[in-house]
């Protein structure tokens, strides 16, 4: 199923380069980006923030039954990555099998193809992570 073009386009900065936000009052980092600080409320001041792409595996799971469009990629690893700056993101761990992944293992951002709306649709790109070796 093809994702709406406007939704894809709006998310390009966060998907392509982990562009998030931070509250300059309490220094909390947000990913995906928030326009409002949930801690400081109206005292919060939000500005854009680029994440380094470094993180650790918080939890992970091997996917053996893929959603439509990702059938060729099974078995693949899906993980919750704890970014060095705080937030957690769910993303695929590339170029490895489930047995190579461990909780707390360091990972780094990679830019990969997320899915393509075949055969004539859009190609969606975004963040995934790779084990740091």
């Amino acid at each position: 199923m093809a994702e709406n073009i406007a939704i894809t386009w709006r998310r390009i900065p966060e998907r392509y380069r982990l562009a998030g936000t931070q509250c300059t009052t309490c220094k909390t980092k947000f990913f995906p980006p928030r326009k409002f600080c949930t801690a400081c409320r109206r005292k919060g001041k939000i500005e854009s923030f680029s994440f380094s792409g470094k993180g650790k595996i918080y939890s992970f799971s091997g996917v053996h039954s893929a959603p439509a469009g990702l059938e060729l990629e099974i078995p693949y690893v899906l993980a919750i990555v704890h970014l060095a700056e705080g937030p957690k993101v769910t993303a695929q761990i590339v170029d490895c099998t489930e047995d190579a992944v461990k909780i707390d293992a360091p990972v780094e951002f990679v830019f990969r193809k997320i899915r393509s709306d075949d055969p004539e649709g859009l190609i969606h790109y975004g963040y995934k992570f790779r084990l740091v070796k």
């Binding site: 060729l72 990629e73 830019f111 193809k113 190609i123 995934k128």
Partner: peptide
């Protein structure tokens, strides 16, 4: 290339 790699993704990593 991996299943999720193409000329664009390789270019991005080299560029970074």
């Amino acid at each position: 290339p991996g299943l999720d790699e193409d000329a664009a993704s390789l270019a991005v990593e080299a560029a970074r």
